[in-house]
Design a binder for these strands. Structure first.
Lengths: 107, 107
DNA sequence: AAAGAATATTCTAGTCAAGGCATATTCGAC
DNA sequence: GTCGAATATGCCTTGACTAGAATATTCTTT
């Protein structure tokens, strides 16, 4: 989870992921499209691959990189545990606050 | 978006967010619970606050930090644009890739 | 085998962020 | 106003990350 966040926290890596949303691409077109030098693209892709966000498919001398859904799905699952924070009553928090101030206990 | 990822990419910050899911807490209890020194907790909370992930409510000398839903909701919206990758059978992508590589191998 | 295209790796330098520690600040109790 | 509790800030050191440039590797073609 944290590794996914770390991978997406880098601006250029984020742009690469966004670009790949439209489909797999070889390294050079990514670099052209995002105005990044080839070595940087390869490095970023390496990180994205280590995080499972991307997979490679060799084709001739080119390597097509494609998005992998798994980490994003896991992110979605993680968010699920937080959805109550805005989906439903948010005011229950105030009660908890009251409670905490009285009993300084920690569980 | 990237700022949200950056905030959550730090392990201890992630743990703080997870802890705050159960409700607002003062700084010291966070430190105790996560075995972090007080200055680090304050620094991490500062980053989380700058990212909008957290808000403060002073109470006596204590400061209760609570989760803010907005960034998580925006994350959810962002994920929405990727859900087709796994919601529908977008695995067609894999097929296409397979096909392309096979065609190349055999041709 | 040689050449060329596409990509990966290495090395270096500069930057940024995190932890540790000391200290400053804020606020309530007396 | 002073003291003490809770929290924030500053400084320093260290480790990690990134870009740049050069070079190595891989695969294809001839």
């Amino acid at each position: 989870m944290v590794e996914t966040f770390a991978a997406l926290a880098e601006p250029n890596r984020f742009r690469i992921v966004e670009l790949l949303r439209s489909g797999p691409r070889p390294v050079n077109t990514i670099g052209e499209r995002l105005a990044l030098r080839q070595p940087q693209v390869s490095k970023h892709l390496k990180v994205l691959k280590a995080a499972g966000l991307v997979e490679v498919e060799p084709r001739a001398q080119q390597r097509f990189y494609a998005l992998r859904p798994e980490p994003l799905r896991r992110l979605d699952d993680w968010l699920d545990r937080y959805r109550q924070l805005w989906d439903e009553r948010f005011d229950a928090m105030d009660e908890v606050l009251e409670e905490l101030t009285q009993k300084e206990d920690e569980g």
